[in-house]
Amino acid sequence: DEEDDDLHHFHTLHFTSLFPQSLCTPSSSFTPGSKQRSSTLQVVHRHGPCSVPHLTTPPSLAEILAADESRVESIQAKLAPSYEITRAGKRNKYKDRKVDLPVQPGRSLGSGNYIVRVGLGTPPKTLSLIFDTGSDLTWTQCQPCARSCYQQQDPIFNPSSSSSYSNVSCASSQCSQLSSATGNTPGCSTKTCVYGIQYGDQSFSVGFLSKDTLTISKSAVFQNFFFGCGQNNQGLFGNTAGLIGLGRDQLSVVSQTAGTYGKYFSYCLPSSSSSTGHLSLGRSRASGSVIFTPFASSSQGAASNSFYFVDIDGISVGGRALSISQSVFQAAGGTIVDSGTVITRLPPAAYSALSTEFQQQMKKYPVAPAYSILDTCYDFSNYTNTKIVIPTISFTFRGNAKVNLDASGILIAINGKQACLAFAGNSDSST
Protein backbone atom coordinates (compact mmCIF):
# COMPACT_ATOMS: atom_id res chain seq x y z
CA ASP A 1 0.00 0.00 0.00
CA GLU A 2 2.82 2.38 0.82
CA GLU A 3 4.41 1.71 -2.53
CA ASP A 4 1.06 2.32 -4.18
CA ASP A 5 0.70 5.61 -2.29
CA ASP A 6 4.19 6.62 -3.32
CA LEU A 7 3.32 5.96 -6.93
CA HIS A 8 0.31 8.21 -6.67
CA HIS A 9 1.83 10.98 -4.61
CA PHE A 10 5.06 11.60 -6.49
CA HIS A 11 6.19 12.19 -10.04
CA THR A 12 9.48 10.63 -11.12
CA LEU A 13 10.97 12.29 -14.15
CA HIS A 14 14.14 13.38 -15.88
CA PHE A 15 14.88 17.03 -15.22
CA THR A 16 15.63 17.47 -18.91
CA SER A 17 12.08 16.43 -19.77
CA LEU A 18 10.94 19.83 -18.50
CA PHE A 19 12.63 21.50 -21.45
CA PRO A 20 10.98 21.77 -24.87
CA GLN A 21 12.67 20.06 -27.79
CA SER A 22 14.08 22.08 -30.65
CA LEU A 23 11.92 20.22 -33.15
CA CYS A 24 8.15 20.00 -33.19
CA THR A 25 6.63 16.69 -32.09
CA PRO A 26 2.91 16.88 -32.86
CA SER A 27 0.59 15.19 -30.40
CA SER A 28 -1.22 12.09 -31.63
CA SER A 29 -4.43 13.39 -30.04
CA PHE A 30 -5.01 15.67 -33.00
CA THR A 31 -6.19 14.00 -36.17
CA PRO A 32 -6.94 16.52 -38.90
CA GLY A 33 -9.79 15.56 -41.15
CA SER A 34 -11.27 13.06 -38.77
CA LYS A 35 -15.05 13.16 -39.01
CA GLN A 36 -15.42 13.00 -35.26
CA ARG A 37 -12.96 15.88 -34.89
CA SER A 38 -14.23 18.08 -37.69
CA SER A 39 -14.53 21.05 -35.35
CA THR A 40 -11.07 20.59 -33.86
CA LEU A 41 -8.18 22.98 -34.32
CA GLN A 42 -4.56 22.30 -33.59
CA VAL A 43 -3.16 24.34 -30.70
CA VAL A 44 0.48 25.37 -30.66
CA HIS A 45 2.50 27.60 -28.39
CA ARG A 46 3.13 30.82 -30.25
CA HIS A 47 6.85 30.85 -29.44
CA GLY A 48 7.57 27.13 -29.90
CA PRO A 49 8.92 25.17 -32.88
CA CYS A 50 5.39 24.02 -33.83
CA SER A 51 4.45 27.60 -34.62
CA VAL A 52 5.16 29.27 -37.94
CA PRO A 53 8.72 30.60 -38.32
CA HIS A 54 9.28 33.72 -36.26
CA LEU A 55 9.88 37.14 -37.67
CA THR A 56 11.29 38.34 -34.37
CA THR A 57 13.21 36.85 -31.46
CA PRO A 58 10.91 35.02 -29.02
CA PRO A 59 10.76 36.62 -25.57
CA SER A 60 12.77 35.21 -22.68
CA LEU A 61 11.03 33.44 -19.81
CA ALA A 62 11.59 36.54 -17.67
CA GLU A 63 9.79 38.63 -20.28
CA ILE A 64 6.96 36.09 -20.48
CA LEU A 65 6.55 36.18 -16.69
CA ALA A 66 6.61 39.98 -16.67
CA ALA A 67 3.87 39.98 -19.30
CA ASP A 68 1.96 37.43 -17.24
CA GLU A 69 2.05 39.76 -14.25
CA SER A 70 0.69 42.52 -16.45
CA ARG A 71 -2.20 40.33 -17.57
CA VAL A 72 -3.01 39.35 -13.99
CA GLU A 73 -2.97 42.97 -12.88
CA SER A 74 -5.29 43.79 -15.76
CA ILE A 75 -7.77 41.02 -14.87
CA GLN A 76 -7.78 42.00 -11.22
CA ALA A 77 -8.27 45.65 -12.07
CA LYS A 78 -11.28 44.74 -14.23
CA LEU A 79 -12.77 42.78 -11.34
CA ALA A 80 -12.14 45.44 -8.72
CA PRO A 81 -15.35 46.63 -7.01
CA SER A 82 -14.82 50.14 -8.31
CA TYR A 83 -15.59 48.84 -11.78
CA GLU A 84 -19.12 47.91 -10.78
CA ILE A 85 -21.79 49.87 -12.53
CA THR A 86 -25.40 49.73 -11.43
CA ARG A 87 -28.15 48.69 -13.83
CA ALA A 88 -29.20 52.31 -14.04
CA GLY A 89 -25.81 53.03 -15.51
CA LYS A 90 -24.54 54.93 -12.52
CA ARG A 91 -21.33 54.24 -10.74
CA ASN A 92 -21.87 52.55 -7.42
CA LYS A 93 -20.70 53.70 -4.04
CA TYR A 94 -17.12 52.95 -4.92
CA LYS A 95 -17.14 55.59 -7.62
CA ASP A 96 -14.48 57.65 -5.96
CA ARG A 97 -12.12 54.77 -5.65
CA LYS A 98 -9.51 55.00 -8.35
CA VAL A 99 -8.57 52.01 -10.49
CA ASP A 100 -5.04 52.09 -11.74
CA LEU A 101 -4.76 49.95 -14.81
CA PRO A 102 -1.17 48.90 -15.23
CA VAL A 103 0.64 51.02 -17.75
CA GLN A 104 3.90 49.37 -18.51
CA PRO A 105 5.34 49.99 -21.94
CA GLY A 106 6.99 46.94 -23.38
CA ARG A 107 4.71 44.48 -21.67
CA SER A 108 2.15 42.56 -23.67
CA LEU A 109 -1.25 41.24 -22.71
CA GLY A 110 0.37 37.88 -22.17
CA SER A 111 3.27 36.36 -23.97
CA GLY A 112 2.54 32.84 -22.88
CA ASN A 113 -0.42 32.38 -25.16
CA TYR A 114 -1.39 29.60 -27.49
CA ILE A 115 -2.53 30.02 -31.06
CA VAL A 116 -4.86 28.30 -33.50
CA ARG A 117 -5.22 28.73 -37.25
CA VAL A 118 -8.63 29.47 -38.74
CA GLY A 119 -9.93 30.60 -42.11
CA LEU A 120 -11.73 33.88 -42.66
CA GLY A 121 -13.57 35.12 -45.73
CA THR A 122 -14.46 33.66 -49.13
CA PRO A 123 -12.22 32.11 -50.28
CA PRO A 124 -10.88 31.53 -46.74
CA LYS A 125 -7.60 33.15 -45.77
CA THR A 126 -5.68 31.42 -43.00
CA LEU A 127 -4.97 33.45 -39.88
CA SER A 128 -3.02 32.56 -36.72
CA LEU A 129 -4.99 33.86 -33.75
CA ILE A 130 -4.25 33.86 -30.04
CA PHE A 131 -6.99 31.87 -28.34
CA ASP A 132 -8.18 33.38 -25.12
CA THR A 133 -10.89 32.33 -22.67
CA GLY A 134 -10.41 35.64 -20.87
CA SER A 135 -11.85 37.87 -23.60
CA ASP A 136 -14.76 37.84 -26.04
CA LEU A 137 -14.26 39.79 -29.24
CA THR A 138 -12.49 38.05 -32.09
CA TRP A 139 -10.46 40.51 -34.15
CA THR A 140 -7.82 40.50 -36.83
CA GLN A 141 -5.73 43.15 -38.52
CA CYS A 142 -7.39 44.36 -41.71
CA GLN A 143 -6.33 46.11 -44.89
CA PRO A 144 -5.92 48.94 -45.59
CA CYS A 145 -4.63 49.38 -42.00
CA ALA A 146 -5.93 52.95 -42.08
CA ARG A 147 -3.92 53.96 -39.01
CA SER A 148 -1.52 51.22 -37.98
CA CYS A 149 -0.81 47.50 -38.26
CA TYR A 150 2.03 45.61 -36.63
CA GLN A 151 4.04 43.00 -38.48
CA GLN A 152 2.36 39.60 -38.64
CA GLN A 153 3.29 36.25 -40.16
CA ASP A 154 0.17 35.67 -42.27
CA PRO A 155 -0.88 38.10 -45.00
CA ILE A 156 -3.10 40.78 -43.46
CA PHE A 157 -6.78 40.10 -44.13
CA ASN A 158 -8.12 42.13 -47.02
CA PRO A 159 -11.92 42.61 -46.90
CA SER A 160 -12.08 43.60 -50.55
CA SER A 161 -10.81 40.17 -51.58
CA SER A 162 -13.59 38.37 -49.72
CA SER A 163 -16.93 37.99 -51.51
CA SER A 164 -18.79 37.37 -48.24
CA TYR A 165 -17.48 40.33 -46.22
CA SER A 166 -19.69 43.15 -45.01
CA ASN A 167 -19.58 45.88 -42.40
CA VAL A 168 -22.08 46.01 -39.55
CA SER A 169 -24.37 48.98 -39.04
CA CYS A 170 -24.41 51.13 -35.93
CA ALA A 171 -28.07 50.27 -35.35
CA SER A 172 -27.50 46.53 -35.12
CA SER A 173 -27.84 44.59 -31.88
CA GLN A 174 -24.32 43.25 -32.36
CA CYS A 175 -22.97 46.80 -32.31
CA SER A 176 -24.70 47.35 -28.97
CA GLN A 177 -23.20 44.13 -27.64
CA LEU A 178 -19.72 45.56 -28.06
CA SER A 179 -20.12 47.49 -24.82
CA SER A 180 -20.07 44.36 -22.71
CA ALA A 181 -17.77 42.39 -25.00
CA THR A 182 -15.04 45.01 -25.03
CA GLY A 183 -15.83 47.23 -22.05
CA ASN A 184 -15.98 50.22 -24.39
CA THR A 185 -18.92 52.01 -25.93
CA PRO A 186 -18.89 51.45 -29.70
CA GLY A 187 -18.45 54.33 -32.10
CA CYS A 188 -20.13 55.05 -35.41
CA SER A 189 -18.54 56.14 -38.67
CA THR A 190 -20.74 56.70 -41.74
CA LYS A 191 -23.30 54.29 -40.26
CA THR A 192 -20.65 51.60 -39.73
CA CYS A 193 -20.11 50.29 -36.20
CA VAL A 194 -16.65 50.98 -34.79
CA TYR A 195 -15.20 48.83 -32.00
CA GLY A 196 -12.30 49.56 -29.69
CA ILE A 197 -10.68 47.07 -27.36
CA GLN A 198 -7.83 47.94 -25.08
CA TYR A 199 -5.87 45.61 -22.86
CA GLY A 200 -4.30 46.29 -19.51
CA ASP A 201 -0.91 47.09 -20.96
CA GLN A 202 -2.31 49.70 -23.35
CA SER A 203 -2.18 47.32 -26.32
CA PHE A 204 -5.28 47.89 -28.40
CA SER A 205 -7.21 47.26 -31.59
CA VAL A 206 -9.69 49.68 -33.15
CA GLY A 207 -11.64 49.09 -36.34
CA PHE A 208 -14.91 48.16 -37.93
CA LEU A 209 -17.28 45.57 -36.59
CA SER A 210 -17.68 43.25 -39.54
CA LYS A 211 -19.10 39.92 -40.53
CA ASP A 212 -17.73 37.25 -42.80
CA THR A 213 -17.44 33.50 -43.08
CA LEU A 214 -15.38 31.73 -40.41
CA THR A 215 -13.91 28.40 -41.47
CA ILE A 216 -12.75 26.07 -38.74
CA SER A 217 -12.54 23.06 -41.05
CA LYS A 218 -14.07 22.04 -44.37
CA SER A 219 -17.14 20.78 -42.56
CA ALA A 220 -17.29 23.49 -39.90
CA VAL A 221 -18.07 26.74 -41.68
CA PHE A 222 -19.95 29.66 -40.10
CA GLN A 223 -21.41 32.39 -42.26
CA ASN A 224 -22.04 35.86 -40.89
CA PHE A 225 -19.50 35.54 -38.09
CA PHE A 226 -19.06 38.88 -36.30
CA PHE A 227 -15.49 40.02 -35.70
CA GLY A 228 -13.36 43.12 -35.45
CA CYS A 229 -11.63 44.27 -38.62
CA GLY A 230 -8.74 46.18 -37.07
CA GLN A 231 -7.55 49.40 -38.70
CA ASN A 232 -5.43 50.61 -35.80
CA ASN A 233 -3.63 47.85 -33.97
CA GLN A 234 -0.77 48.46 -31.60
CA GLY A 235 0.90 46.39 -28.93
CA LEU A 236 2.98 43.31 -28.52
CA PHE A 237 0.77 40.69 -30.10
CA GLY A 238 3.83 39.02 -31.58
CA ASN A 239 3.47 37.78 -35.13
CA THR A 240 -0.12 36.68 -34.68
CA ALA A 241 -2.94 38.06 -36.80
CA GLY A 242 -5.13 38.88 -33.80
CA LEU A 243 -7.17 37.11 -31.19
CA ILE A 244 -10.08 34.66 -30.98
CA GLY A 245 -12.28 35.28 -27.94
CA LEU A 246 -13.68 32.28 -26.07
CA GLY A 247 -15.30 34.17 -23.19
CA ARG A 248 -18.94 34.00 -22.14
CA ASP A 249 -20.24 37.19 -23.71
CA GLN A 250 -22.65 37.25 -26.66
CA LEU A 251 -20.05 38.13 -29.29
CA SER A 252 -17.61 35.37 -28.37
CA VAL A 253 -17.01 32.43 -30.70
CA VAL A 254 -18.65 30.22 -28.09
CA SER A 255 -21.88 32.22 -28.21
CA GLN A 256 -21.87 32.79 -31.96
CA THR A 257 -21.56 29.06 -32.67
CA ALA A 258 -23.99 28.04 -29.90
CA GLY A 259 -26.61 26.88 -32.41
CA THR A 260 -24.23 24.21 -33.66
CA TYR A 261 -22.05 23.42 -30.69
CA GLY A 262 -24.31 24.24 -27.76
CA LYS A 263 -21.75 26.43 -25.99
CA TYR A 264 -19.56 23.41 -25.43
CA PHE A 265 -15.84 23.46 -26.11
CA SER A 266 -12.68 21.90 -24.83
CA TYR A 267 -8.95 22.17 -25.24
CA CYS A 268 -5.74 20.50 -24.28
CA LEU A 269 -2.54 22.48 -23.89
CA PRO A 270 0.60 20.46 -24.66
CA SER A 271 3.16 19.59 -21.99
CA SER A 272 5.81 21.65 -23.76
CA SER A 273 6.05 24.27 -26.48
CA SER A 274 7.54 21.67 -28.83
CA SER A 275 4.36 19.64 -28.92
CA THR A 276 0.79 20.37 -29.96
CA GLY A 277 -2.63 20.27 -28.38
CA HIS A 278 -6.13 20.90 -29.65
CA LEU A 279 -9.14 23.15 -29.33
CA SER A 280 -12.48 21.50 -30.07
CA LEU A 281 -15.85 23.14 -30.45
CA GLY A 282 -18.75 20.90 -29.48
CA ARG A 283 -18.83 17.52 -27.81
CA SER A 284 -16.06 15.98 -29.84
CA ARG A 285 -15.14 13.09 -27.60
CA ALA A 286 -16.64 10.91 -24.90
CA SER A 287 -16.52 12.71 -21.59
CA GLY A 288 -16.59 9.60 -19.44
CA SER A 289 -13.20 10.25 -17.86
CA VAL A 290 -13.86 13.95 -17.32
CA ILE A 291 -14.84 15.16 -13.86
CA PHE A 292 -16.93 18.31 -13.58
CA THR A 293 -17.25 21.22 -11.19
CA PRO A 294 -20.07 23.77 -11.43
CA PHE A 295 -19.22 27.27 -12.55
CA ALA A 296 -19.38 29.66 -9.65
CA SER A 297 -21.40 32.81 -9.86
CA SER A 298 -19.39 35.96 -9.62
CA SER A 299 -20.09 38.76 -7.22
CA GLN A 300 -17.80 41.05 -9.10
CA GLY A 301 -20.22 42.96 -11.33
CA ALA A 302 -20.63 43.42 -15.05
CA ALA A 303 -16.94 43.36 -15.86
CA SER A 304 -16.79 39.72 -14.80
CA ASN A 305 -19.28 38.50 -17.40
CA SER A 306 -16.48 37.32 -19.66
CA PHE A 307 -14.70 35.15 -17.14
CA TYR A 308 -15.24 31.56 -16.09
CA PHE A 309 -15.41 31.32 -12.30
CA VAL A 310 -14.95 28.15 -10.26
CA ASP A 311 -14.55 27.40 -6.56
CA ILE A 312 -11.46 25.77 -5.08
CA ASP A 313 -12.23 23.55 -2.09
CA GLY A 314 -8.72 22.35 -1.35
CA ILE A 315 -5.15 21.72 -2.49
CA SER A 316 -2.98 18.68 -1.78
CA VAL A 317 0.78 18.27 -2.06
CA GLY A 318 2.19 14.76 -2.17
CA GLY A 319 -1.17 13.44 -1.02
CA ARG A 320 -1.20 15.73 2.00
CA ALA A 321 -4.15 18.11 2.20
CA LEU A 322 -3.12 21.68 2.94
CA SER A 323 -4.78 23.46 5.82
CA ILE A 324 -6.44 26.36 4.02
CA SER A 325 -9.66 27.88 5.30
CA GLN A 326 -12.44 28.34 2.73
CA SER A 327 -12.56 31.97 3.76
CA VAL A 328 -9.15 32.43 2.15
CA PHE A 329 -10.58 31.81 -1.32
CA GLN A 330 -13.84 33.59 -0.60
CA ALA A 331 -12.04 36.72 0.57
CA ALA A 332 -10.08 36.73 -2.66
CA GLY A 333 -13.29 37.09 -4.66
CA GLY A 334 -13.24 33.67 -6.27
CA THR A 335 -11.13 31.89 -8.84
CA ILE A 336 -11.18 32.10 -12.61
CA VAL A 337 -9.87 29.64 -15.17
CA ASP A 338 -7.88 31.46 -17.82
CA SER A 339 -6.12 30.09 -20.89
CA GLY A 340 -4.03 33.24 -21.25
CA THR A 341 -2.45 33.47 -17.79
CA VAL A 342 0.70 31.38 -17.55
CA ILE A 343 1.25 30.94 -13.81
CA THR A 344 -1.57 30.14 -11.36
CA ARG A 345 -2.07 32.92 -8.81
CA LEU A 346 -3.30 32.03 -5.33
CA PRO A 347 -4.33 34.10 -2.32
CA PRO A 348 -1.28 34.77 -0.11
CA ALA A 349 -2.30 32.31 2.63
CA ALA A 350 -2.98 29.53 0.12
CA TYR A 351 0.27 30.10 -1.73
CA SER A 352 2.21 30.17 1.52
CA ALA A 353 0.74 26.82 2.58
CA LEU A 354 1.46 25.32 -0.84
CA SER A 355 5.03 26.58 -1.00
CA THR A 356 5.82 25.55 2.57
CA GLU A 357 4.59 21.98 2.08
CA PHE A 358 6.31 21.69 -1.29
CA GLN A 359 9.61 22.84 0.23
CA GLN A 360 9.19 20.34 3.05
CA GLN A 361 8.78 17.48 0.59
CA MET A 362 11.58 18.72 -1.68
CA LYS A 363 14.15 19.29 1.07
CA LYS A 364 16.58 16.72 -0.38
CA TYR A 365 17.24 19.08 -3.30
CA PRO A 366 19.40 22.21 -3.02
CA VAL A 367 17.48 25.45 -3.30
CA ALA A 368 18.16 28.13 -5.90
CA PRO A 369 17.51 31.89 -5.93
CA ALA A 370 14.07 33.21 -6.76
CA TYR A 371 13.34 33.98 -10.40
CA SER A 372 10.98 36.79 -11.34
CA ILE A 373 7.62 36.07 -9.67
CA LEU A 374 8.69 32.51 -8.74
CA ASP A 375 10.21 32.20 -5.27
CA THR A 376 10.44 28.44 -4.66
CA CYS A 377 13.31 27.29 -6.83
CA TYR A 378 15.76 24.38 -6.94
CA ASP A 379 19.20 23.68 -8.32
CA PHE A 380 19.14 20.41 -10.23
CA SER A 381 22.64 20.72 -11.71
CA ASN A 382 23.64 17.45 -10.02
CA TYR A 383 20.59 15.66 -11.37
CA THR A 384 20.89 16.17 -15.10
CA ASN A 385 21.59 12.48 -15.67
CA THR A 386 19.36 11.01 -13.00
CA LYS A 387 15.67 11.15 -12.30
CA ILE A 388 14.16 13.55 -9.82
CA VAL A 389 11.14 12.86 -7.63
CA ILE A 390 8.64 15.65 -7.02
CA PRO A 391 5.39 15.55 -5.04
CA THR A 392 2.12 15.53 -6.91
CA ILE A 393 -0.14 18.55 -6.59
CA SER A 394 -3.88 18.22 -6.84
CA PHE A 395 -6.68 20.77 -6.75
CA THR A 396 -10.13 19.86 -5.52
CA PHE A 397 -12.84 22.03 -7.00
CA ARG A 398 -16.40 22.27 -5.71
CA GLY A 399 -18.33 19.05 -6.11
CA ASN A 400 -15.33 16.94 -5.07
CA ALA A 401 -13.73 17.34 -8.49
CA LYS A 402 -10.15 16.38 -7.76
CA VAL A 403 -7.65 17.25 -10.48
CA ASN A 404 -4.10 15.90 -10.42
CA LEU A 405 -1.69 18.22 -12.18
CA ASP A 406 0.77 16.89 -14.71
CA ALA A 407 4.44 17.22 -13.72
CA SER A 408 4.75 19.91 -16.41
CA GLY A 409 2.23 21.94 -14.42
CA ILE A 410 4.23 21.78 -11.18
CA LEU A 411 7.81 22.73 -12.07
CA ILE A 412 8.90 25.22 -14.69
CA ALA A 413 12.47 25.01 -15.98
CA ILE A 414 14.40 28.27 -15.78
CA ASN A 415 17.66 27.19 -17.35
CA GLY A 416 19.78 24.08 -17.76
CA LYS A 417 20.06 23.51 -14.03
CA GLN A 418 17.29 25.41 -12.23
CA ALA A 419 13.55 24.92 -11.96
CA CYS A 420 10.89 26.61 -9.85
CA LEU A 421 7.49 25.77 -8.41
CA ALA A 422 5.16 27.14 -11.10
CA PHE A 423 2.84 29.08 -8.77
CA ALA A 424 2.76 32.60 -7.42
CA GLY A 425 0.91 34.37 -4.66
CA ASN A 426 -1.25 37.44 -5.00
CA SER A 427 0.11 40.38 -3.08
CA ASP A 428 -3.22 41.19 -1.48
CA SER A 429 -5.52 38.70 0.25
CA SER A 430 -8.58 40.56 -1.01
CA THR A 431 -7.71 40.68 -4.72
Partner: peptide, 30 residues
Protein backbone atom coordinates in the same frame (compact mmCIF):
# COMPACT_ATOMS: atom_id res chain seq x y z
CA UNK B 1 -9.02 36.90 -7.54
CA UNK B 2 -7.19 33.61 -7.82
CA UNK B 3 -6.41 32.46 -11.37
CA UNK B 4 -5.91 28.86 -12.51
CA UNK B 5 -3.30 29.45 -15.20
CA UNK B 6 -2.38 27.60 -18.33
CA UNK B 7 0.78 25.94 -17.00
CA UNK B 8 -1.34 24.03 -14.51
CA UNK B 9 -3.80 23.10 -17.27
CA UNK B 10 -1.13 21.37 -19.39
CA UNK B 11 -2.06 17.92 -20.74
CA UNK B 12 -5.50 18.12 -19.14
CA UNK B 13 -8.61 18.02 -21.29
CA UNK B 14 -10.33 21.19 -20.05
CA UNK B 15 -14.03 21.06 -20.93
CA UNK B 16 -16.29 24.13 -20.88
CA UNK B 17 -19.95 23.12 -20.77
CA UNK B 18 -21.19 26.69 -20.67
CA UNK B 19 -24.85 25.88 -21.23
CA UNK B 20 -24.66 23.17 -18.59
CA UNK B 21 -22.93 25.53 -16.17
CA UNK B 22 -19.94 23.35 -15.48
CA UNK B 23 -16.22 22.97 -16.13
CA UNK B 24 -14.56 19.60 -16.59
CA UNK B 25 -11.07 18.20 -16.34
CA UNK B 26 -9.82 14.98 -17.84
CA UNK B 27 -6.39 13.46 -17.47
CA UNK B 28 -4.20 12.78 -20.48
CA UNK B 29 -5.97 15.06 -22.95
CA UNK B 30 -2.92 15.39 -25.20
Amino acid sequence: VAIFGNTQQKTLEVVYDVAGGRLGFGAGGC
